[in-house]
Design a protein around this nucleic acid. Structure first.
Lengths: 227, 227
DNA sequence: CATAGATGAATTGTATGCAAGACTAGAAAT
DNA sequence: ATTTCTAGTCTTGCATACAATTCATCTATG
């Protein structure tokens, strides 16, 4: 499984990096050739990614990079908002010097990136900042859930941080979140994180909504939003 | 994959039913024989269950039913509490007559089961009640997450509902939750659901803590709680 | 007697082959 | 011209075979 594990990571990375666009077929044979292995470990990697929700494996019909409908995407961001506020609430309750320092460092890094208007760097530092909050919840299971969902949404988040003023606004929101957590104000930390995340989601799913009005099979959205 | 999907379900059911106890090895060959298939679809099913966190697949070392440490178990219940309160909060905000009726019906069923002291029946009806709340959040993605975690915890929840007075207490808590959701009181619904779930978690992880003091390799807990 | 090493058995990981269902294109019919 | 049926091709699903690693047992040595 060493092989399959590496492949799973590689395919996931390729999806996150946007090399495979949403809707693209992930053909077993071509992936096998590309990585120089047989179809077996490829299948195993794909099935695992499917179970994690990264891709969509449809029995007998192959795997594709999942195409969340605007509705689904909004639901994902709303869920992310709820999970992140939970992390923030717990972090405010349980903050340790270690976790505080980690958040501070990540925040500083974001500050630098934002000042330089380097959105690619900000994207990376922003991720670290949020992950520092997840860890600060001192609930590793919750943190894992948060990591996973954050990863699934990262492709969408990145595009949307390109606007320069959004960088500065994001940074300011980070400052407010950090302040609330340090003050031990669970409620405030939760609402600030919630709004911070959801505003991204709203903006982005609006954008997708606009894009997908053009032409896209509604079959996806049915599948995605069905119980 | 039709085969593999059925197998995944069957193995999951067997684990939930307690046929495979936490810590049991899930040997590919014996499972293959048991279900009358080759190892290939068994492996695919196991890897998917592993990706969903149901079981623990360790490269080159086989799959076992995961054995959450007491700490990990508490974290899982705490996360469940956070997710359920999120559902409750959204349900309070967005309640429709349909969802209201579904919750009401499930609650009535719980009432009957509790009166009869039928804990096995209550277990099933309780599940329906909680699932009705998930759906009432009108966020199908969040609801899916809630379903999944609820399933993972069901093995632990069941044991603990055996106490008869706990049934009645649980029922009363349900009534309070329902009331808060109907009143549209997001905050109250959230806290009541949070407490309802977490009290189960605390009780149960206390119990597990007591049990595992006897003798159990601490290696599991390290693996489970590590980042 | 305990411990370390080695050898053999058992189990997992990967490749390959074959069977079965899905997709494509073309022909026939309305 | 559009639609439906059909034949062929392509892709996935499963089984089997082999390779590689881990685990267990036995032996040898301190």
């Amino acid at each position: 499984m060493s092989q399959a594990f590496r492949l799973k990571q590689s395919i996931e990375d390729a999806v996150i990096a946007g090399e495979f666009q949403p809707g693209d077929r992930l053909d077993e044979a071509s992936l096998a050739e590309r990585f120089g292995v047989s179809r077996t470990p490829i299948r195993e990697a794909l099935l695992q990614l499917g179970a994690e929700g990264f891709i969509d494996v449809r029995p007998r019909r192959g795997a594709i990079v999942s195409v969340p409908s605007p509705t689904r995407l909004f639901e994902m961001f709303e869920t992310m908002a709820e999970i992140e506020s939970a992390c923030g609430r717990l972090a405010a309750r349980r903050l340790t010097p270690d976790n505080d320092a980690a958040m501070e460092a990540a925040h500083r890094a974001c500050e630098t990136a934002a000042r330089n208007g380097d959105s690619e760097q900000y994207y990376a530092d922003n991720r670290n900042f949020h992950e520092a909050i997840y860890r600060a919840s001192r609930n590793s299971f919750l943190a894992d859930q948060a990591f996973a969902l954050h990863k699934r949404l990262s492709a969408y988040r990145r595009i949307q941080l390109r606007a320069r003023n959004r960088l500065l606004q994001s940074l300011q929101e980070h400052a407010g979140i950090l302040q609330a957590i340090r003050a031990g104000d669970e409620q405030l930390a939760a609402t600030r994180l919630h709004d911070h995340v959801l505003v991204q989601g709203e903006r982005f799913s609006d954008m997708v909504l606009g894009l997908s009005r053009a032409g896209q099979s509604p079959a996806e959205s049915r599948r995605e939003t069905a119980k």
